[in-house]
Amino acid sequence: MKVRRILATMGKHTLLVVLSILFAFPFVWLISTPLKPDAEVMRNPPVWIPSHFQFDNFWKAMNFEGDKLGYIPFLVYGRNTVVLCLLTVLGLVISNALVAYGFAKFRFPGRNLFFILTLATMMIPFPVLMVPTFSLFRAMDWVGTYRPLWVPAWFGSGFSIFLLRQFFKTIPNELSEAARIDGASEFAIFFEVVLPLCKPALAVVALFGFMGTWNDFLGPLIYLLDQKQFTLGLGLQAFQSQHGGTPFSLQMAATSIVILPVVILFIFMQRLLVQGIAVTGIK
């Protein structure tokens, strides 16, 4: 029995190590390409560790005015993306919490139908909404601004509402009843009693929202017109398709720069995230 267990553990670890290598090698290649001298980039057999490190490519990818080739202003794009992400996340957290709470804790006529419709919206593919939403924002003169990208977040999203509603359902009513007897208003109960209990769930919504915006490509592609307004994802595509293409080492440098912040964010939020998903209980 014991031998079997040890063997099983060993097998498990071997498998994990092999899988980790498969998952991680693209990242190693990603970081190592821009660090290499040009001659080693295309060499066969491949060079994993550069003969000498050069950091030029990172600098070139970030530095937009100094270089004749007109590379992409990554710092500007980074700022655009961060502001957009913050606006979206703020809206998502606030409005979805409110709405999900409304669904979870109050009975009102039409609630079930409304909730089923909410679930159904998750099935509407974005391309279906694309054309009419574009016409709508055009009529509002919002194309070419950031508003089409973040304003909808302030009006909720089906997925997050569903996630949070499941969570609110697990919070016992006694707590809010007690506050209600103390004479607290419904909004005060929501903000002061319920929300503090929901941090992990809200963190999940925030993180998914952040990733969604950070990774969004189609939205900015449609609504942002001026190159100076671009987000990182879109900027990177412009970078790639720039006249006949940009050298791979520069592309990889730019890519690493874009990825880094999210990876750091995740490392900090990892525990909270798994907890959060566990408590929201998707089922």
Binding site: S95, N96, L98, V99, Y101, G102, F103, F106, R107, F108, P109, R111, F114, L117, T118, T121, I124, V128, L129, V131, P132, T133, L136, P152, W154, F155, G156, S157, G158, I161, E186, F190
Partner: peptide, 24 residues
């Protein structure tokens, strides 16, 4: 209770109608 229910879900009622149902 119903009033509060509507109040809390109001943003999504607007959002769903404007950004989902209308486009469909």
């Amino acid at each position: 209770e119903a009033m509060y229910g509507y109040l809390f879900t109001l943003p999504w009622m607007i959002g769903m109608s404007v950004f989902m149902l209308y486009p469909v």
